[in-house]
Write a protein that binds this DNA or RNA. Sequence first.
DNA 1: ATCTTTATGTAGCAAGTGCTACGTCCGCTT
DNA 2: AAGCGGACGTAGCACTTGCTACATAAAGAT
Lengths: 186, 186
Amino acid sequence: MPASVKNSPMSKESLLPPLAAHVLTHGLGQASLRPLARAAGTSDRMLLYHFGSKETLIAELLGFVARTYSQALDAALGSERAATRGQALARILTHARSPQMQPFMALWWEIVAGAARGLTGFAPAAHAITAELLGWLEGQMPADDPDPKGGARYLLTLIEGTLMLAAVGHEDTARDGLLASGLAPA
Amino acid sequence: MPASVKNSPMSKESLLPPLAAHVLTHGLGQASLRPLARAAGTSDRMLLYHFGSKETLIAELLGFVARTYSQALDAALGSERAATRGQALARILTHARSPQMQPFMALWWEIVAGAARGLTGFAPAAHAITAELLGWLEGQMPADDPDPKGGARYLLTLIEGTLMLAAVGHEDTARDGLLASGLAPA
DNA sequence: ATCTTTATGTAGCAAGTGCTACGTCCGCTT
DNA sequence: AAGCGGACGTAGCACTTGCTACATAAAGAT
């Protein structure tokens, strides 16, 4: 082992990004301390030292993922309003279906499942991510929209339904549904 | 131990109902062989004897859950057509939000998450359950609906979005979204 | 009556789980 | 210079994981 390897002290903040990366590719269900520690370049001992327990580690990790998602959303998507509701819908669906979003989508459904089961930390993260998406959608609503607030919530419902159907192999069903909604171009 | 206890031979079919009950209350993520066996009145040894491996056990269990869901859907919901799209929507949402459906809903999101992660057996079960719901919705569409096929898919998208938003604590958002859709009564 | 198949229990394996005990550096204060 | 507390490694605990080996008991087939 080279003596030049510095033992720079690791903070929770510096640990979270590699932990999130590991969870994004391997999933939350299989996330156990030792693989997580290996991914972060530490030991399970140190993870518990910093976070206290696995449960709070996961909770803090989900909070970090939610914050990261917010920033990614702001960065990837402009803030100019869409011309139509259909355009706002198309923009966000294109983004959600992009290849680099796929790991996040897989993690997203695990977060939803954890929230539905009442696991600690899951519900706040899921709620925050959804709220972030809703906020972005509200800003995207056309300037002449008669009901931007309700319209954004309507679009959000359609978006989440579309993404869920895609997750279970019913993307064609979702496409036909959006066609019938009158929002998607034929 | 009383000698009167009969060792009646257990078939896969007789094992599946108690296994499903256990998974419905405790979740798929924590489902390991020994607790499952205890719930079914057997040993892990016998579960492997009947199913070969945990992976195929889970896959067969998910198939059973999907079939059970179909029957529950047929039994709980009539087959008379709805008068309006909004009525069909309200019927299925009322059913999905009923207390006895909550364990299934929690399991449902785990199935979706597993399908999104590509776990074996999850995608077929998720696809089948969704198809069942879609088929029921098609039968519910009003007789005078201009596009029953597309309308059913549109409603399905809204339903799944609504249920997902409810799972993450955004039920009010979903309600406002449905209000803005014009399908729900004010 | 023997043989084979099916169903089951008991015991155990190697690996992995979250978590702890203990000791050791190293930089800081006093 | 001494001590102190944060940062880390090593070793290990008790437990659970999926799965297997081995024995056996009952039932049907020959």
